[in-house]
Nucleic acid binder design. Structure first.
Lengths: 178, 178
DNA sequence: ACCATTGATTCGTTCATTGAACCTATGAGG
DNA sequence: CCTCATAGGTTCAATGAACGAATCAATGGT
């Protein structure tokens, strides 16, 4: 199938976690998926927001597309331009990212950088992305993201600035790009 | 503090997920934590179960200890021998690993390799590690792990064999070691 | 003709991973 | 006392991946 070059797979492991990490466990990969869930779709937006080397970004986008986590789609013909959109399989990584982010905040002693709420009731999400109030798993598209108290209110790059306004996950990001 | 050498951190990222990945995002690290949650504690048991290079294992154990995810403790004096035990901070990574494993099984088309149940009622855990019957999030120590239908019933190494018997998470693994 | 934008590829340097070999401390057996 | 076995590592050369700067390609605007 895709890459799976030497040393990239956990050969001896008979484990779903290991299989998952073979796909999304490389450096930068989960941050690309995170940005995609936040609504980032364009090569240049990933680039400036992540501060990732261009070659690595190209490799990750290709690998994620090959694995069906992102989908490459042409959004304009006349200078041919492509964007990368999360698929259902990619959106299904939300609970993992939510759990990881929550662990990071609770155990690395940070201020809250982003707040995630159930859009229909306003309740803040639990560790796995569930709504404690409604006692249901919140679909990714119904998650509202707001800036938390610890987040820089005047970030340098336009993508970070666009991500300051409260927005639903998956909602495509509009970049001023000027 | 510990490592954080050049290129190991996601410098521009103001994000709890990125902070978390700086600690547990390197190759092998989450599998070491997984094994620790399964009850593996000894250098040699990690080694044979993971098939990890010795130098990398030593580096990861040291880093995880420095970050307070594992605790190094002497379990016998006379030939001085140490074991690595998960701390609360390490156990708090369970939701992340649970979410990742679930994604791996559901989206990479695998048979179920391990089954996790609420020990007090026997109900299989839901998508986000909760008990559907008791309607609570199950503490890590109350999770019962059993082999699933897809798991090899006659594995080669003694650690995998010891992990075949139903057991609670965190419960120390007894290795026949002969 | 020239410059700007978007989405990349190429390339030399640096860093991390790998696997084999070696080292240390101790105890057991002969 | 000598040797082997065990547990827990360290050292090293070779390979692979990441980094960042430079370049390229297609198009459109002025």
């Amino acid at each position: 199938m895709g890459g799976m070059a030497l040393g990239k797979d956990y050969a001896t492991q008979e484990c779903s976690i290991a299989r998952a990490l073979e796909i999304v466990g490389e450096r930068w990969t989960l941050l690309v998926v995170r940005d995609a869930l936040y609504g980032v779709r364009r090569y240049n937006d990933f680039l400036v927001h992540l501060g990732i080397p261009r070659a690595v970004l190209a490799a990750r986008l290709q690998a994620l597309t090959a694995e069906g986590i992102l989908e490459k789609r042409r959004y304009q013909q006349s200078p041919p331009r492509d964007e990368y959109v999360v698929t259902d399989r990619g959106a299904a990584l939300w609970p993992t990212l939510r759990a990881l982010g929550r662990w990071g905040r609770e155990h690395l002693g940070e201020e809250q950088l982003r707040v995630f709420r159930h859009v229909s009731c306003g309740t803040e999400l639990g560790s796995y992305g569930e709504c404690p109030h409604c006692a249901t798993v919140v679909p990714v598209a119904d998650v509202l993201m707001e800036p938390g108290p610890g987040l820089d209110p005047e970030p340098a790059d336009p993508v970070s600035r666009a991500l300051l306004t409260p927005r639903r996950l998956l909602q495509p990001l509009e970049t001023p790009s000027a």
